[in-house]
Design a binder for these strands. Structure first.
Lengths: 146, 146
DNA sequence: TATTTGTCTATATAATCTATAGACTTTATG
DNA sequence: CATAAAGTCTATAGATTATATAGACAAATA
């Protein structure tokens, strides 16, 4: 399960992607628009800034904007930043690999093999889906005829 | 992330699958062989029994065995029994569907679409992999030449 | 009736998730 | 230079879940 934190992060980043032409956007605008608890969102944005996905300016007229091109930030990147490994078990993770405590022989672990498939399938989707891809999805929907 | 509980459940079921011909197997044997905390495993097995995957007999010569044919029990079944939904977000789950609290329009939610792909890919793997499939994996490995 | 084995109930600890409060710092602008 | 508007930092708190452990209880067999 994706944490709420990660879901909020994705929503916030997508909002900033959609509003990239408007320059800096206020935390509270994002919080209101996406119905994310204000203070919780603050912490998430600081986190994303630390990780280099966002940039911000303080003081009057300040706010947040993307630090990278939306075509360079994948959903997989973001989920990993907030929640850690995509893999259902760590012994199958690429970036967060760790041996299972109780496992005697990793080579012959059948569960490991199934979970590896799941990890690979998940990564294949999330690591090839970028913010820019998500943004495009509803363009047609929003362009309703007058 | 799969919980340890679910991983232990899978390991225990796989162990029982491999030892199906031996009749009833002791909790403590499973716990020792798979290095699962004994008392914790107990609770898991009771759970799996309640859900109809296992059967047990009390008293001397008692123990656990599978209640179904291993070709009828999928990894997806088991994971759902213990951890609930396979889906990364509930709004995309088939059996545990629930609307996201903060979501205004589910139809146009881009995040929902990516996560739906992940859920479908995961389900495609786990719902078509049965205990019997897992059991087969190491048959060749174990049949080492003398 | 003693022993073996599963069952039930309660408890404990730790971690994580989700969130909130409030003081502080920076920046623009009048 | 004072004020207002914004992000930042630190602390905390409540709830839930994960991961166990202990011990009394019930059933089956020999």
């Amino acid at each position: 399960m994706l944490s709420k934190k990660a879901k909020y992060a994705l929503k916030a980043l997508l909002y900033l992607t959609k509003n990239a032409d408007r320059g800096l956007v206020l935390i509270s605008e994002i919080a209101n628009s996406e119905r994310i608890p204000r203070k919780f969102l603050e912490a998430i944005l600081v986190d994303l800034k630390t990780q280099g996905v966002l940039q911000s300016t303080r003081g009057k007229n300040g706010g947040y904007s993307l630090a990278k091109d939306p075509s360079q930030v994948s959903v997989g990147n973001i989920v990993r930043m907030i929640d850690g490994p995509l893999a259902p078990i760590q012994c199958v993770s690429h970036l967060y690999y760790r041996k299972c405590d109780e496992c005697l022989n990793e080579e012959t672990c059948e569960i490991r093999l199934v979970m590896k498939k799941v990890r690979d399938a998940t990564a294949a989707i999330l690591d090839t889906t970028y913010l820019s891809d998500l943004q495009k999805i509803n363009v047609l929907v929003n362009e309703e005829p007058l």
